[in-house]
Design a protein around this nucleic acid. Structure first.
Lengths: 127, 127
DNA sequence: CTGTATCCTTTTCGATACTG
DNA sequence: CAGTATCGAAAAGGATACAG
């Protein structure tokens, strides 16, 4: 049998939950930051200006729980913590890059679709 | 120049907004339903039992706005509507399959990471 | 059948203050 | 520095009723 992927987008509940935790807005930004080198907590905050401390903590805990990043206590006083990507996390890189490449390739077309939609479907509702 | 991907996970704001709209929970389920054949509104509802009518409508509008699905009015009385994937939508399939394949390959490892986290990090907080 | 409109609950999120 | 705790605002989401 040839190695053509047979599965027609099998999307089980565990799959969805996982992707929700690992592909959400802040997760992707954090992963892209940690992709090349480890970072401290506040380095991540500065690198991702829009994230609040609370959301960043939540995101980091979730990524750590799923095994794609690791948290390392560097020193205790003053506290220094470093986050780094795991091999499992690194293995996400290629699939994510594919989606980003898709987004890049089609951004123009998508913007055109949005403009068309906004000009043809929406105006009929406003007055 | 060789064709090794140089971009180290470039994640601009437009990219994130697009992925938020196209990769979210219900979107992926809808896309996987429409992947192989067009569907009517209520067919989608039945195929995705947990989605509310409101959320399904919102999701379909968003996907249509981004040009990955099309809405076709089949008849007016009684109203019949069919949704189908566009070529742009079809082009998403391969990248999405890659991520799903990644999730499938690593689900076991991720569950182990979760169990380990829940047993080593969390219990120290409860009492 | 395919929505829209409204209400109300739940969840999310930022801002702030505080701790080791 | 790296969080936790708490509060209130905002957004998302479901249920219901209703329209074309």
């Amino acid at each position: 049998m040839p190695e053509t992927t047979p599965s027609p987008l099998t999307l089980s509940t565990p799959h969805r939950e996982l992707l929700d935790q690992v592909l959400d807005k802040w997760s992707l930004l954090v992963m892209s930051e940690l992709c090349d080198s480890p970072r401290r907590f506040n380095e991540l905050r500065r690198a991702i200006p829009d994230v609040s401390q609370k959301s960043l903590t939540t995101t980091l805990r979730r990524l750590e729980r799923n095994g794609v990043i690791e948290r390392h206590l560097l020193s205790s006083r003053p506290v220094a913590v470093q986050y780094q990507i795991t091999p499992l996390g690194k293995s996400m890189r290629s699939p994510i890059e594919e989606i980003l490449a898709w987004a890049t390739r089609n951004m123009e077309r998508i913007n055109q679709a949005r403009a068309r939609f906004d000009n043809t479907v929406l105006p009929s509702h406003s007055e």
